[in-house]
């Protein structure tokens, strides 16, 4: 299926993805209302936008005690906020820390119905929406790779 992938070398850390995500879903601007979070390492000038990877094996979906999490017709993870109790179990079991809890609701990327706005708006082509089996990179592994590659550990 199509997934959002990250090219961390390109990410400038501007957080336009957070802003457009929040705006698109709520009409307001707030990092807390965004389903994507840019992880930052200011000392090394590194940034990484993290959102749901749409894993084939999705622990939050499997473990939601009230079955509020499902896949929609595009295959994207979908949270039914009518049902969601905000217990936070999904936040704990997600392998990528890609679930955010805000005002007692789970916030998870829904791929904007197949046309993710964060990808459209990214000014440096750090985000792509492409067909790929899985996407398993974490901010930590990306940061280590870049630090190694650019001799930041010398």
């Amino acid at each position: 299926m199509k997934r959002i992938t990250v090219t961390a070398e390109n990410c400038a850390g501007c957080r336009q993805c957070e802003m457009v995500c929040s705006f698109q879903h709520t009409g307001k601007f707030s990092s807390s209302l965004a389903r994507v979070t840019v992880h930052k390492d200011d000392r090394n000038g590194l940034d990484y936008p993290l959102m749901c990877r749409q894993c084939t094996d999705c622990p939050p979906l499997d473990s939601c005690p009230v079955q509020a999490i499902s896949r929609n017709s595009d295959g994207a993870i979908w949270v039914d906020w009518q049902t969601c109790t905000g217990c936070g179990l999904c936040e704990n079991v997600c392998k990528y820390d890609a679930v955010k809890l805000n005002e007692s609701k789970a916030y998870i990327c829904d791929l904007c119905g197949g046309d993710p706005h964060c990808v459209q708006r990214c000014p440096t082509e750090a985000l792509q929406y492409i067909e790929t089996p899985e996407f398993t990179e974490t901010p930590e592994t990306a940061f280590s790779r870049m630090k190694e590659e650019w001799c930041f550990n010398e």
Binding site: A12, C14, R15, Q16, P123
Partner: peptide, 9 residues
């Protein structure tokens, strides 16, 4: 690599 401030195009 390049870097930017908040909301920079």
């Amino acid at each position: 690599k390049s870097r930017g401030c908040f909301a920079c195009t």
